[in-house]
Design a protein around this nucleic acid. Structure first.
Lengths: 245, 245
DNA sequence: CGGGTTTCCGTACACTGCACGGAAGCCCAT
DNA sequence: ATGGGCTTCCGTGCAGTGTACGGAAACCCG
C-alpha cells in the first residue's frame, strides 16, 4: 500500500534536527573546524570559502573534515550559528520590553556587520541553531511579559527580526560594495550620477535617497524605532489605531 | 605621487552602473538568456544553476553566452531584476499611502514566493535594476505625498522593505525545506518534538512558536500591519508617542 | 599481541566559471 | 566581385570545486 517505501534523503534535513554521537579522541574537532570556518569566512567571504581552503587552515587533509561534519553546507550552518552566538545581551530579562528588543536588534546588527557573510546566509537557511533559538527565546519572553501571546506575539517578533535581517543584509551589500576608502567616494559619485541621469524616471528617489551616502547607524536607529512603535501600538492597553476588516 | 595609478577592477562594479552598446544581429540575446535563466532558476534553484546548463537550455555553446553577459554573477543580477519586474501594481499613485504600500508589499511577497530563489539573492546584492528602482520610486512617492521627507522618508521605506525581504526570506527557506506534502507533516512533527525536548531552555518559544506550522499568509498580514502602524505613527499630524532622546 | 574501531587522507570523478583563439557569417568600400 | 573588418558562435583547456571510496595508521581493550 505504500508506493514509495523508503526515500533515503529527499532534502537535506536541517542539521539541528539530526543528532550524532561520536565518542573518542581527535586532533581535529567540530569546534576547531567551525572556528576556522568563521575565520575563513571573515577573511574571504562565502565565495572564497571551500573545504580545501578550510582544511589547509587546519593543516589537515581535506577529507579529514568529513569525519566531523557531513557536508560543506552543514559547515555553513554551524558557522552561522557560531557567529550569531557572539550576540551578547546585557539587559536583564526583567528590563522593559522595548529596551530588551532594542538591545537585541542593535547587537544583532553589530555582530552581522562584524561578519559580513552572515546576512547573506541568514536568508538562505532556517535559523534553528542553539544561539539563534536562545536569542528568539529572550525576545519572545520579553514581549510575552508585556502581554502578547499567540499569533500576535509571533507576528511582532517576526516583524522585528525580519526587519533587522533585511536591513543589515542590504546595508552589508552596500558596505562590501564599497570596500576601500579610495573608491568609495568614486562609487558614491557614480551612483549619484546614475540616479540623477534617470531623475525623470525616479524623481522622488533622486531627491531623497542618497544611495548609500546616508549614515547607516542613524538610519537603522530610526527605522528600528518605527518598527518598535508599531509593536507598541499592538500591546494591550494602547489606543486602537485603525479598525481591522 | 600616486602609488597605485590604475587598478583595473578592484571589485565587481554593479552591472547597472556600467553600460554597453552592442549593435548587430544575433540568434541569442540578453533578453533570451535572462528569460532562460529565470526558468532554470525556477526549476533547479540557485544551486542547480550553471552557465553550462543555461546554455544547454538555449541550445547554444556555453561560451556563446559570454558574448551577451559578462559573468555568471551578472546573469544572476539580471535574472533577479527580471523576476522583480513581475511585480504588478494596480493601485493608482494617488491612492492612500497605506493602500499603495500594502499592495506593494503583498505583491512583492507573491512574486518572491513564485520564484523561491529570489529571497536568497536579494540579501546578497544591491537592488539597482530598473524594476527594483521603479518599485522604490512608487513607494517613495506615496509616502512623500503623505508628508514624509529626508531621512524619515528613507527610514520608513527602509523599515518596510527590510521587513518584507526578511520575512519572505525566512518563509521561503521554511517552505522549500518542506517540499512535498508527504514529508511535511513528518518534519513539522519532528520540529515540534525538537522544541518540546528543549522546553526547559526555550519555554516561551515552545509555548508560542509553532515553528512553521503557522499560517504564513495571516502572519505576514499581521506583521505587515504592525510595520505600517509604526510608519503611520511617524506621519505628520499624528500623536507623538514617546519623546525621543 | 591480535582484532576492532576510529581517525586521517590520497586519489578519483563529475562538475564548475571562464580565458583564449579560431571559424564562420555579415557589411561595406573599393 | 573581392577583400577586409567586425561580430557572432563555440571547442578546448585550466584551475578549482564537493565529496565517494577505500586504504593506512594509530589507538583501545581483550
Amino acid at each position: 500500500m505504500s508506493p514509495k517505501p523508503v526515500s533515503p534523503q529527499r532534502t537535506r534535513r536541517a542539521l539541528w534536527l539530526r543528532d550524532d554521537d561520536r565518542p573518542r579522541k581527535p586532533r581535529l574537532s567540530r569546534e576547531r573546524i567551525v572556528a576556522a570556518a568563521v575565520d575563513l569566512l571573515d577573511a574571504e567571504g562565502v565565495d572564497g570559502f571551500s573545504m580545501r581552503r578550510l582544511a589547509a587552515r587546519l593543516q589537515a587533509g581535506t577529507m579529514s573534515l568529513y569525519e566531523y561534519v557531513p557536508s560543506r553546507e552543514d559547515v555553513l550552518d554551524l558557522a552561522l550559528d557560531a557567529a550569531l552566538g557572539e550576540i551578547e545581551l546585557r539587559q536583564p530579562t526583567t528590563a522593559p520590553w522595548r529596551d530588551v528588543l532594542a538591545e537585541q536588534a542593535t547587537e544583532t546588527r553589530r555582530v552581522m556587520l562584524r561578519h559580513p557573510w552572515v546576512p547573506g546566509l541568514v536568508g538562505t537557511r532556517p535559523l534553528l541553531g542553539p544561539a539563534s533559538l536562545a536569542r528568539s527565546e529572550r525576545a519572545y519572553a520579553a514581549l510575552h511579559r508585556a502581554g502578547l501571546a499567540g499569533p500576535a506575539l509571533v507576528a511582532a517578533i517576526s516583524a522585528l527580526y525580519s526587519f533587522v535581517h533585511g536591513f543589515v543584509a542590504t546595508e552589508s551589500t552596500w558596505r562590501t560594495q564599497l570596500p576601500d576608502e579610495a573608491d568609495e567616494a568614486d562609487l558614491r559619485r557614480q551612483a549619484e550620477v546614475f540616479l540623477a541621469e534617470r531623475a525623470d524616471l525616479y524623481p522622488t528617489l533622486a531627491d531623497h535617497a542618497r544611495l548609500g551616502d546616508d549614515d547607516f547607524d542613524a538610519g537603522f536607529a530610526l527605522a528600528l524605532d518605527t518598527v518598535l512603535d508599531g509593536i507598541a501600538a499592538r500591546l494591550p492597553g494602547s489606543p486602537p489605531s485603525r479598525p481591522g476588516p
